[in-house]
């Protein structure tokens, strides 16, 4: 290995690591607030990438039907619940608003010539299409189980993952897809050519991580979400609804997932089922952080990216094995150091 190969691998590792870090953070976020291990996070990655690819090929992404279907079920449930209790004006307005949103997005997708609009508009449309799916999924599958033990939530999460992979196959077909890079220029750093997409991935990831940090440490809404994770009943007594918190974190996770998909789509070919392995590596990062520490999770995820890139060079057949074996020493170390703290106050 010479210096040039090392920097190329390092560049690859850093790009993937940045994406894993984003995913690790959203897994952690969802877990601390709702106790759900969000296994279907990877599906948001593939949905984002494949929707973007479909748009660039000038096809209307079929994901719109998933959004429409979910919104219809959600609204039907809302109306059913209100008929059972009493009809609330504001809630009916929300139902109308949700239906209106879905109709507007579908109208936009069908009437614009998607391959010709600027890339930023394609990205915005993709996000507008996918992000609302997150909170609806929380409402339909997890909200009725809010008090269930973590194991039940995990099982539902796995079932949801399998279903969403199936839906992905149905909507996008078995072909892989790759999108155009955000910009074509490359940068020369000494002897190494940096791909501009690499820079995009790293910059956007850093931006999102910093934005998340500020949102959670500095704004009252972010603090409210953290408070829900710290003490559920305490949060409810301050009027912070755990349902609101759950929906907000799922929206954030869907946003980060699909944004990651859009970011890496120009670098790797993604298939309908590629998301799982990607989010699993983010999960390894989250485990390194003990499912509690955000900074350690982010650093761990970048390390996973690096190790993956370099093991690709030395033992490319074993790269997945090497990455996932990493989890074992960390689990042992964690279990040696952890002590159960009973928090009764």
């Amino acid at each position: 290995m010479n210096f040039q190969i090392a920097t190329l691998l390092g560049q690859d590792g850093l790009t993937n690591g940045a994406i894993y870090a984003l995913l690790a953070l959203s897994i952690l976020l969802v877990f601390t607030v709702t106790r759900i291990l969000l296994i279907p996070l990877g599906e948001f990655v593939t949905f984002g990438a494949l929707t973007m690819a479909a748009m660039q090929m000038g096809k209307t992404p079929k994901l719109e039907w998933l959004l429409l279907g979910l919104v219809l079920i959600d609204c039907a449930l809302d109306i059913y619940q209100q008929i059972k209790r009493h009809i609330d004006r504001n809630k009916m307005k929300m139902v109308a608003l949700k239906l209106g949103y879905a109709v507007i997005i579908i109208a936009l997708l069908n009437n614009l010539s998607l391959s010709e609009i600027p890339m930023i508009a394609q990205i915005a449309l993709t996000l507008c299409l996918i992000v609302p799916i997150g909170p609806i999924i929380y409402r339909l599958f997890f909200q009725p189980l809010a008090d269930a033990p973590a194991l039940v939530l995990l099982i539902v999460s796995i079932a949801l993952h399998v279903t969403m992979v199936g839906v992905g196959l149905l909507l996008f077909g078995p072909e892989g897809a790759r999108t155009q890079p955000f910009s074509d220029t490359g940068f020369r750093l000494g002897a190494v050519l940096l791909k501009s997409q690499t820079l995009w991935v790293i910059l956007v990831s850093i931006f999102l991580i910093v934005a998340l940090f500020i949102a959670f440490e500095r704004t009252l809404y972010g603090k409210a979400l953290r408070a829900t994770a710290v003490n559920r009943m305490g949060a409810r007594l301050q009027g912070i609804s755990p349902i609101f918190a759950g929906k907000a974190t799922f929206a954030l996770a869907a946003f980060i997932g699909s944004a990651s998909g859009i970011l890496i789509a120009p670098i790797t070919t993604l298939y309908y089922d590629s998301g799982f392995i990607i989010s699993l590596k983010g999960f390894v990062g989250a485990i390194i952080g003990g499912l509690v520490s955000y900074p350690i999770a982010a650093i761990g995820a970048v390390a996973v990216g690096m190790i993956e890139a370099f093991s690709m060079f030395w033992a490319s057949n074993y790269k997945e094995i090497i990455v996932f074996t990493l989890i074992i020493p960390f689990l042992i170390w964690r279990s040696m150091n952890s002590h159960n703290v009973e928090d009764d106050e």
Partner: peptide, 30 residues
């Protein structure tokens, strides 16, 4: 809570890993 009822429960239910100031600020969340 939105209608103006406040409860200080027996268990206090504080946000133990957050600062005193944040605890107070979250009281004003509504």
């Amino acid at each position: 809570v939105g209608h103006g009822l406040g409860l200080v429960p027996e268990k206090r239910e504080l946000f133990s890993t957050m600062s005193v100031q944040d605890n107070l600020l979250l009281g004003a969340f509504q």
